[in-house]
């Protein structure tokens, strides 16, 4: 099978040119990368623990160390570039970032995908990362520190691409070519599906917020007035409400 490298498309190049020139955006982007690299680092550490193939363990471990180091580098760079410090810090401090952006689920990625698909994921994902970071490095004419950082990270990504590709090629050569090919396509399909689901969620959230805004503006006024008239924000200690129901009955209800 052919292991074609991913090349950056014109859309990615064009969008990157715009995004990285927006005021304050480089710091936020760096903060977001700090999260994604951290997530990748944890994915790799989990793979390192979970793989049934001892020969893969050190490779996953080295990969994890790289990703965790990249996360720290992005974090430091985000702080250095921050124009609005509290906004950048808020992104850096968002401990739920990976969950809320659908980057990490409740199960380890390795468990979710299995070893073969995981390797295909690493190979494709790292290629995209290297392509992306290569573009970003080229945009950093006025920021040599960031340019150097991206170049260093890109070098690490090349190693990640190389080991995952080598492993996939080895498996393909062992008569598993169709399984490897299928795994690569499954990961491409997964990426497309996840993109579509993110789009779906975005549309859903926007529509729901629209409906909620209508409810708030049009429908809520009378209830708000009653609430303002009847609700007392009574301070101090008040007697606890004693629930007379037996504990066994209370336990079954959510109210």
């Amino acid at each position: 099978m052919r292991f074609a490298d991913i090349r950056p498309g014109p859309v990615l190049v064009g969008v990157s040119h715009i995004v990285w020139r927006l005021p304050g955006r480089p710091a936020t982007k760096m903060a977001e990368f700090a999260h994604t690299e951290l997530g990748s680092g944890h994915d790799m550490l989990e793979a390192c623990e979970l793989t049934p193939r001892p020969e893969m363990r050190p490779l996953y471990f080295l990969h994890a160390l790289d990703e965790l180091r990249h996360s720290r580098m992005f974090r430091e760079r985000a702080r250095a570039l921050a124009i609005e410090r509290s906004r950048t810090q808020a992104v850096l401090d968002d401990s739920g970032y990976l969950h809320s952006h659908g980057i990490r689920g409740s199960d380890p990625l390795f468990t979710e995908l299995g070893e073969l698909d995981f390797l295909a994921f690493v190979w494709l994902h790292e290629q995209r990362g290297a392509a992306q970071f290569g573009i970003y490095a080229g945009l950093m004419d006025e920021d040599p520190a960031s340019r150097e950082m991206f170049a260093r990270i890109e070098k690490d990504e090349r190693f990640h691409i190389a080991y995952s590709r080598k492993e996939l090629e080895r498996l393909a050569a062992q008569g598993q070519a169709s399984a490897v090919s299928a795994a690569v396509w499954r990961i491409r399909w997964r990426r497309f599906k996840q993109g579509w689901l993110r789009f779906s969620r975005l549309i859903g959230d926007t529509m729901a917020k629209l409906w909620l805004t209508v409810i708030y503006v049009v429908g809520i006024t009378p209830f708000a007035l009653i609430a303002k008239l009847t609700e007392r924000e009574q301070g101090g200690l008040v007697p606890a409400e004693v629930d007379d129901r037996p504990a066994a009955q209370r336990a079954l209800e959510q109210l």
Partner: peptide, 17 residues
């Protein structure tokens, strides 16, 4: 959020969702 009306719209959108 009702007692805080009308300044609670952003909070209402977020929490209700």
């Amino acid at each position: 959020q009702l007692t805080g009306f009308p300044s609670t719209l952003p909070a209402f959108q977020r929490t209700a969702l």
